[in-house]
């Protein structure tokens, strides 16, 4: 597979602040890559470096075959970038913005008009071309930004929170569009705070305080997480809050959270070890898990909670990120304490 983006130890410091800390990534052509992390974790900073508009403090990187450090202008011909903050001209119309950007990218001549029409069609703005960009609603602004980032058929597309502020239908349409582009071989680098979007990515990476905590394919990450912390258990019951309180009294469990109409339960490391590691046998694992699930049901019924179902499920990406974040926090706290000693 052809590599589109490859970075090694990419680092950015703002004064003393380490915004991006030795980032290592490899992303292939045609992949949809989700770049995740809490606010201020350095996602935008990393994207800006990859786009050649922010000089890295150190490290190496190749984007579309060009060096991030040495050839930022060459990178710019091959990429599209949609910034997190709307940054098109609010006093220009949709058509004027698109015309301006397409000409800066050298989309001129015969095919240009067709291309612009297609792109507007694609993002669903064809019938508003004369409207000022500043008067568009948030979601429509995002779509216009996408159109401007797409017009020159970039090989790599960087989208910094493209769906922020979009309605669910528009989000779904956008994602369908993104997969279509990926199918055409475009590499998509996307940041988002929506976990359902993260789940759709072919590959995800999670950064925290500028540091890459984990990366890989979601399925594979989930398998690894199960090996480490076991399956999650989903409990449908009423009333939910009472059920949560009841389960928090069960010593085998580490965490009980409400997830929509269900309780999402994580067992503690002791239980995980008991279930998975003492006897690697599949049958034994299943039996022990069933035992745990029935004791959960018993506990709830004893506490007068109506239980509809108890099932074992895969951990979500959110589960994984939360547990990595906690582990990292604990590590940092340890370091802090050491410092103060």
């Amino acid at each position: 597979m052809e590599v589109a983006i490859e970075v090694e130890n990419l680092t950015k410091k703002f004064g003393k602040l380490l915004a991006v800390d030795s980032l290592n990534l490899t992303i292939n052509k045609g992949e949809v890559f989700g770049f995740l992390g809490p606010n201020g974790s350095g996602k935008t900073t990393a994207i800006r470096m990859l786009c050649g508009i922010l000089e890295p403090t150190s490290g190496n990187g190749m984007v579309g075959g060009f060096d991030v450090m040495k050839e930022p202008e060459k990178i710019k011909c091959n990429i599209g970038y949609m910034s997190q903050k709307f940054s098109l001209y609010t006093d220009l119309t949709i058509q004027e913005n698109l015309d301006f950007y397409s000409s800066l990218y050298g989309v001129v001549g015969k095919g240009a008009r067709e291309r612009k029409k297609d792109v507007l069609e694609l993002v669903g703005l064809s019938r508003r071309v004369k409207q000022l960009a500043g008067n568009l609603s948030g979601g429509l602004k995002q779509r216009l930004a996408l159109a401007c980032a797409l017009v020159h058929r970039p090989k790599i597309l960087f989208l910094d929170e493209p769906t922020a502020g979009m309605d669910p239908v528009a989000r779904r349409i956008l994602w369908d569009l993104l997969f279509k582009l990926a199918g055409e071989g475009v590499c998509l680098f996307i940041t988002t705070h929506y976990m359902d979007e993260a789940e759709r990515c072919v590959k995800v990476a999670y950064v925290y305080y500028g540091k890459l905590l984990l990366s890989g394919r979601p399925e594979q990450m989930k398998q690894e997480e199960i090996a480490k912390t076991g399956h999650r258990i989903e409990v449908m019951c009423t009333p939910l809050v009472k059920g949560m309180m009841s389960l928090r009294g069960l010593p085998e469990l580490e965490e009980v959270t409400i997830f929509g109409e269900a309780l999402h339960v994580k067992m503690n490391s002791h239980t995980v070890q008991w279930i998975y590691q003492d006897h690697g046998h599949d049958f034994a694992v299943a039996a022990k898990r069933a035992y745990l699930m029935s004791s959960i049901k018993d506990k709830l019924e004893r506490d007068n909670v109506v239980v509809r179902s108890v099932t074992s499920v895969f951990p979500t990406l959110e589960d994984i990120f939360v547990s990595f974040t906690r582990a990292e926090d604990a590590k940092r706290e340890g370091q802090q304490i050491q410092k103060f000693d």
């Binding site: 202008e73 970038y81 910034s83 950007y101 800066l104």
Partner: peptide, 8 residues
């Protein structure tokens, strides 16, 4: 500015 300078 950001969107302008990301073009070639």
């Amino acid at each position: 500015f950001e969107q302008l300078i990301v073009t070639p």
